[in-house]
């Protein structure tokens, strides 16, 4: 695996081909549990774990599965790792396990996971697949955490509330209360709010991409210096 390749994988996973912002995959858990940072982070990491491990596994067996049975096989692999993470969370972060509820087992059905397994891992080597899985997972996590943060701020005017559910007692005091006596903006907490905020995130990504493209184009268009005299005074009318 060449260095250029890994650079591209990292870029793709995090930005250019982000599972959420570009592929619009895995919206169900994204919209349902991104009510706060802690929920988002937990689900994001769990999903990242499943994508990475299942990518590795799929890559390992990619030469031994036929086309006809590959999808059931991939789903089985993903389901196994999802069960692993479910048990892990049950054991170590029980409250979060209860909060996230059905959305942990639902990782199996997250299209982003199966998508990477089928589109990337089944065609590439183990190392590349592992990196791709990790980056895709992190890209997913980044978006869901951003969404969670925005919804937490808008809905409850807090940040990092309840982080001890994930990080234990040291995180007891991490919560930041931005506004005292906040009424709460229920809309942001409810799924429709997630949709709208998600839409704005997509728009933001498009704006950034457009700006980047413009800048790149401007750099390319810069005329060769010295080739022509530049008029410094006066107007041409």
């Amino acid at each position: 695996m060449s260095a250029v390749d890994s650079k591209k994988i990292i870029k793709d996973g995090l930005w250019n081909n982000n599972p959420v912002l570009v592929q619009i995959l895995g919206l169900c858990p994204l919209l349902a549990v991104s009510g706060s940072i802690v929920n988002s982070l937990a689900l994001g990491l769990a999903t990242a774990f499943v994508i990475t491990t299942s990518n590795i596994a799929v890559s390992l067996i990619r030469n031994y599965t036929t086309d006809t049975v590959r999808l059931p096989v991939f789903v089985m692999i993903i389901a196994s790792f999802t069960t692993c993470i479910e048990f892990l969370m049950n054991a170590f972060t029980y409250e979060l396990y209860l909060v996230l509820g059905i959305f942990i087992p639902l990782i199996v059905t997250n299209c982003a996971v199966l998508g990477r397994a089928d589109a990337f891992a089944s065609k590439n080597g183990v190392a590349a697949s592992a990196l791709d899985g990790l980056m895709t997972g992190l890209g997913f996590t980044a978006v869901i955490v951003t969404l969670g943060a925005l919804r937490e701020v808008l809905g409850q005017a807090t940040l990092f509330d309840n982080m001890h559910l994930l990080f234990g007692d040291i995180a007891q005091n991490w919560a930041i209360h931005l506004v005292d006596d906040y009424k709460g903006f229920l809309f942001a907490v409810l799924p429709p709010g997630a949709f709208v905020i998600m839409g704005f995130l997509l728009a933001l990504k498009n704006i950034i991409d457009k700006k980047l493209k413009e800048r790149a184009a401007a750099l390319l268009e810069k005329p060769a210096t010295g080739s022509r005299r530049v008029r410094t005074t006066g107007n041409i009318s």
């Binding site: 009424k183 903006f185 229920l186 809309f187 942001a188 409810l190």
Partner: peptide, 10 residues
């Protein structure tokens, strides 16, 4: 509707 579901009391 946005206001109603977000701020039912008011």
């Amino acid at each position: 509707v946005l206001l109603l579901i977000s701020f039912p009391l008011e």
